[in-house]
């Protein structure tokens, strides 16, 4: 099932032209098809970062499972966090079809050399943060992933279709948490507003730098991995979210936010790109904590992995012996 990079034919102009024509016709590129080395590399980079984000994304929310305010909320949050683990697995397996081992990718994550979405380097200080994450972070992820569900690479596209179906519930459960808090006591409303204040800007940073500053965009678009630009996606998310905030009487913390009749978009203020790059480069509020938690979880799980292998070995011997008898 996996392509062998050592035996891929030299990239020549004809093959590249054929490949680009296939992408332009909207055909799916599958693991064994010829693809430019850059396409493979860009996909491995993008998909592994996406998979890591799903895995690290469990940490800020997992933090609140034992403190969820009701059984209903706890069940919802548990199911959501379990989904994130599943999503990480789908995308790791999709990435493996490009000829890289999951083991190697996880090694990079644990070594701190891999990137993941910066949003997960912010802390979850109150229960309202769980609402804000579902509503805004999953909401932003859905906008991005709905586009990726049309990506040119088959395994990525198929993983995204599955993930989009599942994530609608994540957004709904988050928005419901915000709605209930915003409609509650003054203190609860304030808690919801505070969470929105802290999560709004990091959420709209999730779409990445402005198009002009996005070094990978041109190539990703030409090869049909991305079909919309960072700025287009960000605008779409903001247009969708403003009405949702208004409906539950919360205020988006941007004094420059106003509707533009001409473009039919919500204009917004400038993003603090210094903060964005600081967090990307490892200096966010929780970068070290997240990595330490992943390493601990991996080390603590070692006995489970060892037990699974020992059990499988024992079963194999038992079967062989019962077969021989």
């Amino acid at each position: 099932m996996r392509p062998d990079p050592l035996h891929s034919a030299p990239e020549d102009a004809t093959r590249l032209a054929q490949f680009e024509a296939r992408v332009a016709r909207g055909e799916s590129i599958e693991p064994k098809d010829w693809m430019p080395e850059r396409y493979r590399k860009q996909l491995i980079r993008m998909m592994s970062q996406h998979a890591h984000s799903e895995i690290v994304g469990m940490l800020p929310e997992g933090n609140w499972i034992t403190r969820a305010p009701s059984l209903r909320r706890k069940l919802g949050l548990l199911a959501k966090v379990q989904d994130e683990a599943g999503h990480g697995l789908y995308i790791y397996c999709g990435t493996e079809t490009l000829g890289v081992d999951r083991h190697e990718l996880i090694g990079q994550l644990l070594a701190g050399t891999a990137k993941y979405s910066s949003i997960f380097n912010y802390p979850t200080l109150t229960w309202a943060d769980i609402g804000a994450i579902g509503w805004l972070v999953d909401g932003a992820a859905i906008v991005n992933q709905t586009m990726l569900a049309k990506a040119s690479y088959g395994p990525y596209k198929r993983a995204m279709i599955r993930i989009c179906k599942e994530e609608n519930f994540h957004k709904r459960q988050g928005y419901e948490i915000m709605m209930v808090l915003a409609g509650g006591t003054a203190a609860q409303h304030a808690m919801a507003q505070d969470a929105l204040n802290r999560w709004w800007w990091p959420s709209i940073m999730m779409f990445g730098p402005h198009d002009a500053a996005s070094s990978n965009s041109e190539e990703l678009t030409r090869w049909g991995i991305k079909r919309k630009s960072n700025d287009e996606l960000r605008q779409r998310f903001i247009n969708l979210t403003v009405a949702q905030a208004q409906a539950i009487a919360l205020t988006i913390p941007d004094p420059e936010l106003r509707y533009n009749e001409e473009t039919e978009n919500w204009d917004f203020g400038e993003i603090d790109w210094d903060e964005f790059w600081r967090v990307v480069k490892g200096d966010g509020p929780c970068n070290r904590e997240r990595l330490a938690a992943r390493r601990k979880a991996h080390a603590d799980g070692e006995w489970v992995r060892a037990a699974a292998v020992a059990h499988a070995d024992k079963e194999r011997v038992r079967l062989r012996e019962s077969g021989a008898a």
Partner: peptide, 10 residues
Amino acid sequence: GSLHAVDAEH
């Protein structure tokens, strides 16, 4: 899709 596991049951 695909996944990693030690044996068939797993």
